[in-house]
């Protein structure tokens, strides 16, 4: 137990140093952050505006009105942003694998996966957080949400869980490069799938697809189920559970499993130049 705490302290200590370095990097390249500052909010705000246009033409989508969609969209973008900060490197794992960039992580006395993500922490992801918060707050107002301490706790727990689910999926996809020896950038693919399944209610998909998104690739827990529960929208899967906590559990499970898959893949790592 004492050893575990000491280890945790070690990782926290390194994390603080790494975040400090990430900020120093931003200072070195102010033009880059400015670019993402503009590009990321535009992308999501315009994306949300188009949803608004469509839903206003039709009234609602599968029983979700416009305010509820904003709530869902905003929360989903927030967990997306957090996953961009901590786990986005998973998309590019193929490059690291083929360029031999895991060499240095393997020769240091810390978890390889931890070093891979945290020494490449993407502080720029903060720029995604802003539109997420804006649309979320807008959704809260539209839905006239009662902001109680328990509500805030649920939102926070859900965000952590959702970020872990996303991160786990990125790790899983990235780890396939140990087997395929390909530098395939999963960013586009992952983003596409995640957008389609977390920004809109998955109840619009057929049962079979919903089953997959609930139990096999548990993306439904990223936003759809917890938001349904928070807003009191009926769904047979929920059964009165406090869903945000389920999301956290699912997140822990997904990240553990994909961590194991990564570890198995790492044994096949070939460094570079062979």
């Amino acid at each position: 137990m004492k050893k575990a705490f000491k280890e945790l302290g070690h990782y926290l200590d390194v994390t603080i140093q790494v975040i400090k370095m990430a900020f120093l990097t931003i200072v070195e390249y102010p033009a880059n952050i400015a670019g993402w500052m503009i590009s990321n909010p535009i992308q999501f705000i315009v994306g949300f505006a188009t949803i608004k246009f469509v839903v206003e033409s039709f009234g609602e989508i599968n029983g979700w009105n416009y305010g509820q969609l904003a709530f869902l969209y905003g929360l989903s973008v927030m967990s997306h942003a957090l996953s961009m900060i901590f786990f986005v490197q998973g998309w590019f794992m193929g490059y690291f694998v083929l360029e031999g960039d895991f060499d240095r992580y393997l020769t240091r006395p810390m978890s390889v996966l931890y070093q891979f993500f945290f020494t490449n922490i993407n502080i720029f992801g903060i720029t995604d957080l802003i539109p997420g918060i804006l649309v979320f707050v807008y959704g809260c107002i539209k839905c006239a949400v009662q902001v109680t301490p328990f509500f805030v706790l649920q939102v926070l727990v859900m965000l952590i869980g959702a970020t872990l689910i996303r991160g786990g999926i990125y790790i899983f996809l990235g780890s396939t490069s140990f087997y395929t020896k390909s530098t395939t950038d999963f960013g586009m693919y992952t983003q596409e799938i995640m957008d389609k399944t977390t920004l809109y209610p998955i109840s619009m998909y057929p049962e079979s697809l919903q089953f997959i998104l609930t139990y096999l690739i548990p993306i439904g827990w990223v936003s759809f189920y917890p938001v349904s529960s928070l807003l009191g929208i009926e769904n047979s899967v929920l059964n009165g559970m406090v869903v945000p906590f389920v999301t956290l559990l699912v997140g822990l499970l997904v990240i553990t499993l994909s961590g194991l898959f990564f570890k198995a893949g790492l044994k096949k790592y070939e460094s570079a130049g062979n």
Partner: peptide, 25 residues
């Protein structure tokens, strides 16, 4: 390892040492 580096390309050399100081405690 010859042509590759474990130093952070974007920052001053001392920052990379500082990180290693924390990693190796």
């Amino acid at each position: 390892f010859g042509q590759r580096t474990q130093l952070n390309w974007d920052l001053r050399l001392g920052e990379s040492f500082e990180l290693l100081k924390h990693i190796y405690q």
